[in-house]
Design a protein around this nucleic acid. Structure first.
Length: 184
DNA sequence: TGCACGATCTCG
DNA sequence: GAGATCGTGCAT
């Protein structure tokens, strides 16, 4: 299981290194899911106009000002929960948005079997893994029911692009802070 | 207290 | 290409 120290680093480094890791989810009713993180975005610092933290410390963004390794989940467009992990040390607001998973699986009869659900979008993966705002502000870990583990995978090819859906962010919209596995 | 809008997805 | 749908932040 990845410890908080993994997340208390530069957000772009964390976002890049999360690719190829397993995201594990244990639901309140006991079901276990996992999937390989395949797409992430970095939202780094109070200057980054694409980051919610650019608005300053508000009830919603407070968790991003806390230490790395915590969960930030928010509702967008009135119907989609977005999953983020906070990064950096206490006082520096930043987080990584988890935008996609590949090879989603569910634990059945003593083994992982393919999950029949799409997880190739930030709103889709939270729906498939039953991730919602009840997890907001909690630390990553097995007791929380959401954690990350090394999968022993090093992606062969990673693509870097500007972030999606942040055209309002002025010069910050062009920062190449989106990371995608092109070849696993 | 009201209002505009969003780190999206699905259907037509 | 547009509608669904509601919390958040900022104006009133």
């Amino acid at each position: 299981m990845l410890e908080a120290s993994f997340f208390k680093r530069d957000t772009r480094t964390v976002a890049r290194e999360l690719l190829g890791k397993y995201l594990y989810r244990r639901t309140p009713d006991g079901r276990l899911f996992r999937g390989i993180i395949s797409e992430t975005e970095a939202y780094h610092g109070p200057e980054d106009l694409a980051c919610h933290c650019a608005k300053g410390k508000t009830p919603r963004t407070t968790v991003m000002f806390g230490p790395g390794g915590h969960i930030y989940v928010y509702l967008i467009y009135g119907m989609y929960e977005m999953l983020n992990f906070t990064t950096m040390d206490e006082g520096f607001p930043a987080a990584v948005l988890i935008r996609g998973l590949m090879h989603p699986e569910v634990w059945e009869n003593g083994r992982f079997v393919p999950l029949d659900a799409k997880t190739d979008g930030p709103g889709k993966l939270t729906r498939a893994f039953e991730i919602d705002r009840s997890l907001n502000t909690r630390p990553l870990g097995d007791r929380t029911g959401l954690w990350v583990e090394d999968a022993g995978i090093t992606p062969r090819e990673v693509e870097t692009t500007p972030r999606i859906g942040v055209d309002y962010a002025g010069e910050w919209k062009d920062k190449p802070w989106r990371y995608v596995i092109k070849k696993l």
